[in-house]
Measured scan of single mutants.
Amino acid sequence: AEKTGIVNVSSSLNAREGASTSSKVIGSLSGNTKVTIVGEEGAFYKIEYKGSHGYVAKEYIKDIKDE
């Protein structure tokens, strides 16, 4: 099942092309942005936001229960 997560940073969080800190940054998400978690790979979540996919470090995403 898809989960919703909240970007848990004070400034912004980089979204990357792949599940690695050396992957190209494809965008950034500001704190408290809601994202859909579609998968996980190592220390990263694969997320969907406004129709695009990217990878973000798990430690900066807070899971919330689907309402």
Rank of each mutant, 00 (worst) to 15 (best):
V38T: 06
A1C: 15
N14G: 07
V38Y: 06
S12H: 13
L13Q: 03
N14E: 15
I37T: 00
G5A: 05
S11L: 10
G18A: 14
N8R: 09
A1Y: 14
R16S: 07
V25Y: 05
N32A: 08
S23A: 11
A43L: 12
N14A: 14
I37H: 00
K46S: 02
E67C: 13
S11W: 09
V9C: 15
G27A: 08
G51F: 04
R16Q: 10
A1T: 13
N8K: 12
I37F: 01
V9Q: 07
E67T: 13
S12W: 13
Y60D: 08
S28L: 12
I61R: 03
I47R: 00
T36D: 07
S30P: 15
I26E: 04
G27Q: 03
G5C: 08
A15I: 15
K34S: 07
A15R: 02
T21V: 12
T33I: 06
T36V: 14
A43N: 12
I47T: 03
F44P: 00
K24D: 06
G42H: 03
A19T: 07
Y55F: 11
N32I: 06
S20M: 06
N14V: 15
E41Y: 09
S28V: 14
V25W: 05
G31E: 09
N8C: 15
G31Q: 11
T36Y: 13
E67W: 12
A1K: 14
G31P: 15
G51L: 04
E17H: 05
G42C: 06
N32H: 11
G42L: 03
S12Y: 14
A19G: 04
K3G: 05
G27P: 01
K24L: 07
E41W: 06
A57Y: 12
R16G: 04
I37S: 01
Y55R: 00
T36A: 08
T4I: 12
E40D: 06
N8Y: 08
G42A: 04
E2K: 15
K46I: 13
A57L: 15
Y60E: 06
S22D: 14
I64S: 06
K34M: 12
E59G: 05
I64V: 12
D66G: 10
S52I: 14
F44D: 01
K34V: 13
V7H: 03
V25H: 03
K58L: 04
Y55P: 00
I26V: 08
K34C: 10
K24V: 07
K3T: 07
T4N: 07
T4D: 03
K24N: 08
T36L: 09
E67A: 13
A57P: 15
G31H: 14
V56A: 01
I6N: 05
E2N: 15
S28K: 12
E59F: 07
N32K: 07
V9D: 06
G42S: 05
K50H: 11
S11F: 10
E17R: 04
G31N: 15
I26C: 09
F44S: 01
S12P: 08
K50D: 09
V7L: 06
T21D: 13
T33F: 06
H53T: 11
E67P: 12
K62I: 14
G39I: 02
E2L: 15
L13I: 15
I61E: 01
S10E: 13
I61S: 00
K58G: 03
K58W: 02
H53C: 08
S22T: 12
N8D: 10
E48N: 10
Y60W: 08
N32T: 07
S52C: 13
G42T: 00
S12C: 15
Y60K: 07
A43E: 13
E59P: 03
S10G: 11
G39M: 04
A19W: 04
G39F: 02
V7F: 03
V56H: 01
S28E: 12
S28F: 10
K34R: 11
G54R: 03
A43G: 12
K58F: 03
S22F: 09
S12L: 10
Y45M: 02
A43D: 14
K3Y: 10
E67D: 13
G51T: 05
I61L: 07
H53A: 07
H53Y: 15
S52V: 13
